[in-house]
Design a protein around this nucleic acid. Structure first.
Lengths: 343, 343
DNA sequence: TTGTATGCGTTATCAG
DNA sequence: CTGATAACGCATACAA
């Protein structure tokens, strides 16, 4: 077995009778190094199997070209698409992405944030954990000039970059769509108000749409959940179908909830969309698998990821110490009318 | 804005009039340091907002307590569950996980591998890209005593740890199940033979099961695909349904393919499972969403992730330079009989 | 165009 | 029990 010690620029320097500084510069195409030397160095590096030690470089230069991503989980379609977007953009600028999952736990989020800081990431992209109420664990980034971008589930009061959709108007659009499809008893599921208020905003849109179109607001048709699993959705739907009369429409703020409602309806012999129309949120893959296909609101996950990464990279480039208010980027959503809300 | 320079052990040392070495040791509960000092140091560190610089520690100690994960994508349910398993185990032993996606491209995989090495990860867990035929880019790990574990899509000839399921027997079980449900014209979809031979193995199991049960093997019922997207599945299914007579069963080596077959069948008025029974593979979430629910083969993604991480960590602990043959870990699969293959 | 010297923050070795 | 010092591998300021 080869007990290969890692090859360093020092090894290359020795072999070529050059200074380490020359090697270091040649490897990065520094303009003060002759083409000849550059070629020679690169060739030898290749031959010797040199791989730069990013730890050393990071320590020395205090920049790691690494973007830390801190999200609840990678298993949600929305979030994995977000990652995908981040990665695509990062890769173009030669940034490495390191992903950590909070599993929607505040404590884990705090730990992971520390770990990211400990790893001296160049920038951070975060979608908050469900549990998170306090965001002081992000101060370490802000205080040290490490660009921080919140995505989707963002804190309300934190002067940093945010990439979001307009949840209010999305909720409004979804509800309006159901009204236009003839619904007059529209139910809504919402989730425990948290820091980010994402579900609250969607609910606000729902309420406003009802008001604007003179549809009665019935508190019995609004179900409040603490979490948004499939099982929660089944419970909520059953509660709705126990009403008399049952609602004729549902705006669910997530496709999983919507799907659970459709399936519960089917199980109870309620016809979708004839007796009960549904619109979800996110445009998850399942929305096209379920029968009937689910109407939903698009959520531009990949675009959001790209936008967030762009902000980080741009900010790092200009290295401006701006105390300016950080902008909020709003991305578009659209109603995707499929079978589950057909007239 | 606070222009906080990072707090270092040097800052703590200065404040407490102690040596940096004392601080370093105190922070790690070294037994040669008095309890009093340890307490004092920890308190001050906390107060000053000290966060260890893992780059420096990694550089110095040549170990980073980081596991690099190199997989095709995080968006596949199987792979995101795998990650989940890796993370759970890693976190218990205080390892950090860094994830990179090859997007099934050989070139990206080579790059990412270099990047992981460059980051001096302590160990690597990899599921190969579809495109990968050559695995020499992993030698850098093997040669430098960095534990390497392949998972699921593994190379055939590479003396390193492997965590897999027995694809042959899984394919056999799936096919046998269809036979037991009364199928006699069982179709199969397979994918271009690659290094890992995962699909080939499943196909081999399919063939053997047919033979063992005296069911005719009809080459027309076996469709070979280059990729395994939903669209590919639709094409394959249509080809099968254009046959006369159509097959009465299908073993699809992935749930997406199976779902596409079910939906294509429905579109063409073919009744599932009455006229056409289907079994998939992986037990993806969609398998429980589609109507009828999809029979499938379980794939213990999270367990595999845990097993792989365990191997890395154990190996790192014992730091034995074993030239021994590396073991292969086989995990169990099961037939999950649901509606789509009902008699 | 290249070389010299230094420091990034930590830990391990050795000395006290 | 604590301190001084060197070393990890690289990048930069400065010198030549």
């Amino acid at each position: 077995m080869e007990e290969n010690k890692h090859v360093t620029i020092y090894d290359i320097a020795e072999r070529l009778n050059l200074a380490t500084s020359t090697i270091s510069r040649a490897l990065k195409d520094h303009h003060t190094i002759s083409d000849k030397t550059i070629k020679k160095v690169k060739k030898t590096a290749e031959e010797m199997g040199f791989v730069p030690n990013t730890l050393a470089a990071g320590l020395r230069g205090n920049k790691t070209r690494t973007i830390g991503v801190l999200i609840p989980t990678v298993t949600q379609p929305f979030l994995s698409s977000l990652i995908s977007g981040i990665e695509i953009t990062a890769q173009k600028s030669d940034y490495t992405v390191i992903i950590m999952q909070s599993h929607d736990s505040y404590d884990e989020e705090v730990n992971m944030a520390k770990s990211l800081y400990s790893n001296r990431v160049s920038g951070v992209i975060c979608s908050l954990a469900m549990e998170t109420r306090d965001t002081s664990h992000f101060h370490q980034f802000s205080n040290n000039n490490i660009p921080l971008v919140f995505v989707d589930r963002v804190p309300k009061d934190y002067n940093t970059f945010r990439v979001v959709i307009d949840n209010y108007s999305a909720g409004y659009k979804a509800t309006k769509h159901l009204i236009e499809q003839g619904c007059i008893r529209i139910a809504h599921i919402t989730a425990g108000s948290e820091l980010g208020n994402l579900y609250n905003e969607r609910k606000r849109g729902y309420i406003e749409a009802l008001k604007d179109h003179n549809v009665d607001i019935d508190e019995n048709l609004i179900i409040n959940l603490n979490s948004v699993t499939y099982e929660d959705g089944v419970k909520a739907s059953n509660a709705l179908f126990d009403l008399d009369p049952i609602p004729d429409g549902l705006f669910a703020p997530g496709d999983i909830l919507a799907v659970s409602a459709v399936q519960t309806a089917k199980k109870r012999g309620i016809k979708v969309p004839e007796e009960f129309k549904v619109i979800g949120f996110n445009n998850d893959p399942i929305s096209q698998i379920i029968d009937p296909n689910l109407s939903t609101i698009t959520h531009p996950a990949e675009k959001m990821g790209k936008a967030a990464a762009d902000i980080i990279i741009k900010n790092l480039k200009s290295s401006k110490n701006d105390d300016d208010a950080k902008e909020i980027t709003f991305l578009n959503t659209e109603v995707l009318a499929r079978e589950s809300s057909q007239k």
